[in-house]
Design a protein around this nucleic acid. Sequence first.
DNA 1: CGATTAGTTCCATAATTCTGAAACTATGAA
DNA 2: TTCATAGTTTCAGAATTATGGAACTAATCG
Lengths: 111, 111
Amino acid sequence: MELIDAVTALSSLAQPARLQVFRLLVKTGVEGICAGELSRQMDIPKPTMSFHLKELMNAGMISSERKGRSITYRVRKEGIQQLMTFLTEDCCQGRPELCLPPSGEEKGCCG
Amino acid sequence: MELIDAVTALSSLAQPARLQVFRLLVKTGVEGICAGELSRQMDIPKPTMSFHLKELMNAGMISSERKGRSITYRVRKEGIQQLMTFLTEDCCQGRPELCLPPSGEEKGCCG
DNA sequence: CGATTAGTTCCATAATTCTGAAACTATGAA
DNA sequence: TTCATAGTTTCAGAATTATGGAACTAATCG
């Protein structure tokens, strides 16, 4: 992943409505939610929601599938995983122990 | 972490210059880099760099420490960790196996 | 076909963010 | 003190993003 792709991914999530959509889709998992339902649930006009969904699509954070008249949106796990990998790349100078919390039980930022 | 804090954190990283600064600081670790050095290395005027550093500070992604005339900036691990936790919260409907890659060896988005 | 529902695109306005010159504050050296 | 270096703040113009009404395309039904 290049820096510019990471910026696109981060920008797509760096907006209240979009981050909320993303989290709704994370919770919903494979089932997904269609555009109109998101628009209704969040009380956001359809054109605005459509704009936000486009941003998230463009950033590779969600995917879409048409089902009859509706279009179902789902979170794209590879997207968020790639972003998280990029953010912690080269962390800890290759020595994860520097990164682990004192207890050593939880996972540090390098996993 | 609240949604609004996550938006602030994401916004702070969703800018090429700032994401590059963040990565430089990730690589440098505890040593850190001072403002002027960042300004020089990235060829960005001091006021602009100062603005970006302030954004990252405000988002809790970096910390600062004055050393004589210089101010050293360092990555703030808790910041990025909290953000990543927030992004994968409620993922996989509590069933991490749904999230793990086929091989089962790498870590999925739920850790 | 025409009517209805779902969703997107267009586009002008509003709001926010970014940039860097000029002026400022802070620290250390002579 | 005065000077020089490091960094920040101010502020105004430039650039980018967000918003939603109106008009459009897509699919289904009768």
